[in-house]
Deep mutational scan, measured.
Amino acid sequence: DHDVVPEDKFQETLHLKEKEGCPQAFHALLSWLLTQDSTAILDFWRVLFKDYNLERYGRLQPILDSFPKDVDLSQPRKGRKPPAVPKALVPPPRLPTKRKASEEARAAAPAALTPRGTASPGSQLKAKPPKKPESSAEQQRLPLGNGIQTMSASVQRAVAMSSGDVPGARGAVEGILIQQVFESGGSKKCIQVGGEFYTPSKFEDSGSGKNKARSSSGPKPLVRAKGAQGAAPGGGEARLGQQGSVPAPLALPSDPQLHQKNEDECAVCRDGGELICCDGCPRAFHLACLSPPLREIPSGTWRCSSCLQATVQEVQPRAEEPRPQEPPVETPLPPGLRSAGEEVRGPPGEPLAGMDTTLVYKHLPAPPSAAPLPGLDSSALHPLLCVGPEGQQNLAPGARCGVCGDGTDVLRCTHCAAAFHWRCHFPAGTSRPGTGLRCRSCSGDVTPAPVEGVLAPSPARLAPGPAKDDTASHEPALHRDDLESLLSEHTFDGILQWAIQSMARPAAPFPS
């Protein structure tokens, strides 16, 4: 592969990997390779389809078979030569091979799209000592099968071997295949498990690692696999990028399955594409389908809103127990993405979901129960707010008499603000006073009005108090039968009158 990737590009890729991570280095090298001529790309395919690569990765054979028959990708048995050289000459001794072996032994695996480039050397060096003999053996194999790289107009793939297949390693990572398949204008990513390549439709969760975000852009890794992070704060999961590491605690105790298979379609829109997988259930989501939507993949363990709600429900009964003089119970939860139609709101002032922060849900004790107040519409209280300059209440639009249902020339009671006709409430011909108009209920007259088809109010509507207090003497005590009587009149003013009279009014101040 030294004929494909020059030394300066190799060093530039290593520097970019240390600065921005393996995914960015892979993407940059792939983009550079696509700008080369067809001879360089053909050399790339020839390096990929060597015999030892085909033996190690069985899924490469179907890719090789898909090439046109007129494309010669065979390799000479006596060494490598550029395709432009007409004579089959043995190339001179390859010093770059020693360079590659020494550099890969030092860096474990470079971040390139060629056999030198995919593992994360920093994480491997940190986690190597417990498994040094086995990992050293794996390093000797890295130059042979560490990076199976493929690129063409139909298929483009980048393979990364790992030393996680050490025997006896619980939940060992089998390997990473960062794979971009450009077929019919689409893009897919796969993962390699035990020599087999699994596409998103049959993606397997190998051991402790999972394909957290099938994305090839942005600074985030394709698999949430930063070796420096180790395990999740809650004892979460091992990262795919942690090559040759000792077994780590796999999943939280509440995880239903340690080796679950995540779905390959969004649980909201039932469509495929780039998904984020939940650590607590097999569901996966688009970032845009979450509520609120996320802009980037959160670091650490992530769970959907259903799993978060289940966790909150487990903690909430203990938080609601009476604990005198104790601060509110704080339950730190990872930043969760909410699927459509589901929402768990945190306290005000918290950062938005999706940031690399930890939301704190506070379970406050329930407030003391209070008697429910009568629910009145805002339009129902409008007549009470229509007060004239002299303190006389004006008529609201649409006000109707509670007896006849007519809204023409209605009066407004100064005591309960109900609309009424003087002739309907006082049919006996009582003279109307000039000021202080009161309806039949507030004036103490319980004589029913002779209106055909309208039920008369119940005599129990009024329960006047002592006459010594004029204001308190007109406080009506309405009961269920009074409400039914008012409802039978089918008037809004009657219902409003009952609601206003049912509310307690402050006692009249004593004259000074």
Rank of each mutant, 00 (worst) to 15 (best):
Q243K: 09
G244A: 15
V246F: 15
P247H: 10
P247L: 13
L250N: 04
L252F: 08
K261P: 13
N262E: 13
E263H: 15
A267T: 10
C269N: 05
R270E: 09
D271C: 13
D271Y: 07
D271E: 08
G273T: 12
G273C: 09
C277Q: 04
A284F: 07
H286M: 09
L287C: 08
L287H: 08
A288N: 11
S291L: 11
P292I: 11
L294Y: 13
T301F: 13
R303D: 15
R303Q: 03
S305K: 11
S306Q: 12
S306R: 11
L308W: 14
E320G: 09
P327A: 08
P327C: 11
L337K: 09
G341K: 05
E342H: 15
E343Y: 06
E343N: 14
R345A: 08
E350C: 12
P351I: 10
L352Y: 14
V360W: 15
Y361L: 11
K362F: 07
P365V: 14
A366E: 08
A370R: 08
A371C: 04
A371W: 12
A371H: 15
G375K: 12
G375W: 14
A380E: 08
H382A: 11
H382T: 09
P383V: 05
L384C: 13
L384A: 08
L384Q: 11
L384F: 14
L384H: 05
L385I: 05
G388N: 08
G391M: 03
Q393S: 08
A396F: 14
A399E: 12
G405A: 13
D406P: 02
D406K: 07
V410A: 09
V410D: 02
C413F: 04
A419M: 04
F420S: 02
W422V: 12
C424F: 03
P427T: 08
G434F: 13
T435N: 11
T435M: 12
G436L: 06
S441D: 14
S441P: 12
G444H: 14
T447P: 11
E452F: 11
V454H: 08
V454F: 07
L455Q: 07
A456D: 12
A456V: 09
P457I: 12
S458T: 05
S458E: 11
R461I: 07
A463M: 15
A463Y: 11
G465N: 08
K468C: 05
D469K: 07
T471E: 09
S473T: 02
A477F: 05
H479L: 09
H479T: 06
D482K: 00
D482S: 04
E484I: 02
L486P: 05
L486N: 00
L487C: 04
L487G: 04
E489G: 03
D493K: 02
Q497M: 01
I500Q: 02
I500L: 03
S502P: 04
A507M: 06
A507H: 08
P509V: 12
P511Y: 15
